[in-house]
Design a protein around this nucleic acid. Structure first.
Lengths: 163, 163
DNA sequence: CGGGTTTTCATGGGATATCATGGGATTTTA
DNA sequence: TAAAATCCCATGATATCCCATGAAAACCCG
């Protein structure tokens, strides 16, 4: 079920803390098991933003690794791609997290932060970049639907898709 | 099944609340599962108005995403287009909701609000804009009806859900 | 079918809880 | 030892919850 909806803007304070929006916080807490981190943060490979994964969803990403020989190059490559840039984050009592400097730089964050819900995960953006990204996604998502008409492309059936 | 019919006008009050018309409320409540939001609000991609989706209908929109590779650009675009501008809303005991500022601005809402039923969903408009839109739709639907002589356009109003 | 009663609806307001923001003290880490 | 992280507390704004009221709609009875 989708849980992260909408785009919410909060401030990054002088101590480098930012409040996770309450609805995202509630959704993360509902999914986090005892002793787990609240959320896993990693740089997006597609955009100048941070991806935020509930811990269970992130763990599910690593399941294909289990099928690889632990000493193979494939295993090593995937493990590096998955784990080496990922950071766990827990919030303080007020629901704030601290973002690692490398991730802040990747996303170009300075004083305000936009939390963009994508259903199963959310992304953390510089607010103006987030606005541009949403506009781009609206445009591109129309184009996604159209070329799949004849069923020739591998994303099947999304002529039915949407908006 | 319940459908959203008619156009109803209510006031946006000083606290930013507006009553969902009783018939729409009844239809939404009939469809909402326990623990679900009553309705999902998102900006229309075609008109200066807000689209209001029963949560189940909105969830159905996301099913095509499941068929895309989660790490593909197409998936990311559609997830952003679908979720990043969508906000869940629950009503208070009197059946009122609060509209997010971004959506109010998109629809140009100030003090009155028009709820326009479109069958499976409804739209929320500034009342004068709603009136102009209904007039335009009447004109355009006549034009559509004429070439559809062979019954090509009569299959289901799936135009309702899209931009 | 009309009049009276009851119920529902939309609107308004106040109290309380939550949220986001800010700051200081203490502890941990490099 | 200094910087960073964590913990704790406070506050204004907003959302949520609760209650009231007049108008309109629905209902009932003769």
């Amino acid at each position: 079920m989708s849980v992260f909806l909408g785009t919410h803007q909060n401030r990054l304070d002088a101590k480098g803390r930012v409040s996770i929006p309450a609805s995202f916080r509630t959704a993360l807490r509902a999914q986090a098991a005892a002793g787990e981190s609240l959320v896993i943060l990693r740089p997006s490979h597609q955009h100048p933003c941070i991806e935020a994964w509930p811990t269970a969803a992130f763990a599910a990403l690593s399941q294909p690794l289990d099928r690889l020989d632990m000493f193979s190059d494939d295993h090593d490559d995937m493990a590096a791609a998955l784990y080496a840039d990922a950071y766990p984050a827990d919030s303080d009592r007020e629901g704030r997290i601290i973002l690692p400097d490398a991730l802040k730089e990747h996303a170009g964050l300075t004083d305000s932060v936009a939390f963009m819900g994508l259903g199963r995960i959310f992304q953390i953006w510089e607010p103006a970049a987030a606005e541009r990204r949403r506009a781009e996604a609206r445009t591109r998502s129309r184009q996604v639907a159209l070329p799949a008409r004849g069923g020739t492309s591998s994303p099947s059936g999304n002529g039915a898709a949407t908006q």
